[in-house]
């Protein structure tokens, strides 16, 4: 594993007396799909929040493409090309799907005059293409807030792709989506990874999904890194099984 795109080294995050992340070290290689699993409350989302700059870390360093980002703000990190999606969907509810998409054009190097620019036809074309990719094309003129939860998740994924990201941090992309749609989503995630070369770092509770999707998996428990390995290794790991079944 050379070419590490995201390197987390010794990151600790405390909330008062609670240690949500305790000295976590992990690496995400470019172009790979890496999973992050763990029981509820094990610190997965906290780690995501630390990586994308939602809150400062107490100790440790986070590097994205060799650049130290642990002191950068959310907006700056997003513009570097690392976009996260949320566990609960975050979409712009009073805007149509197309507007949700077009407003998500990359905002890197946006000068003052660019703020007032019109959307060019190629932006609409790209938005329509991506909506079609996630199967929302017929609903593109509906208000995003009127979509079902599962469709909003798909829209959020399409919006993330619209920003031309280098890496996506997906927080439970399949939670709340019906089983038929999940298969389609896995396939789309794999296509985004293979065709567009986007690195994926995925939190997932659905074991069937993550074992199929990820090439390697990190497992957290009680804020600590418990195990790392291929899906097969993780499935055989006794400490992981114990953590999920509640043994200490």
């Amino acid at each position: 594993m050379n070419d590490i795109q995201l390197a987390v080294e010794g990151v600790t995050k405390r909330f008062g007396g609670v240690v949500a992340n305790d000295n976590i070290t992990l690496a995400v290689p470019r172009g790979h799909i890496v999973g992050l699993i763990g029981p509820n409350g094990s610190g997965k989302t906290t780690l995501f929040n630390s990586i994308v700059g939602y809150h400062p870390v107490d100790e440790g360093s986070i590097q994205f493409e060799g650049l130290e980002i642990s002191r950068k703000r959310v907006i700056e990190i997003a513009r570097l090309g690392m976009i996260r999606t949320f566990q609960q969907t975050h979409i712009y509810g009073k805007m149509t799907c197309m507007e949700n998409m077009t407003v998500s054009v990359p905002h890197r190097n946006e000068g003052f005059a660019r703020m007032f620019a019109r959307f060019t036809p190629d932006i609409f074309e790209k938005a329509e293409h991506l909506l079609e990719f996630v199967g929302l094309y017929p609903k593109r003129y509906l208000l995003a807030g009127d979509l079902s939860f599962g469709q909003q998740k798909l829209l959020e994924f399409a919006m993330a792709l619209m920003t031309e990201p280098k890496m996506l941090l997906l927080d439970e992309p399949t939670a709340g989506i019906n089983p038929t749609l999940i298969n389609g989503l896995i396939e789309r995630l794999q296509r985004a990874n293979a065709d567009l070369g986007i690195t994926l770092f995925v939190i997932e509770h659905n074991m069937r999904v993550i074992m199929n999707l990820a090439e390697s998996i990190y497992c957290l428990a009680h804020g600590q890194l418990l195990a790392f390995g291929t899906p097969e290794e993780i499935q055989q790991d006794q400490t992981v099984i114990d953590a999920y079944l509640g043994a200490h």
């Binding site: 959310v74 907006i75 949320f86 979409i91 712009y92 805007m95 905002h107 919006m159």
Partner: peptide
């Protein structure tokens, strides 16, 4: 861009920030 960006701020400012 301007109109949609301020609409986005209205609907979900955290998301707008997370999208850069």
């Amino acid at each position: 861009r301007f109109g949609l960006a301020i609409n986005a701020i209205r609907d979900d400012e955290d998301k707008a920030e997370a999208m850069g």
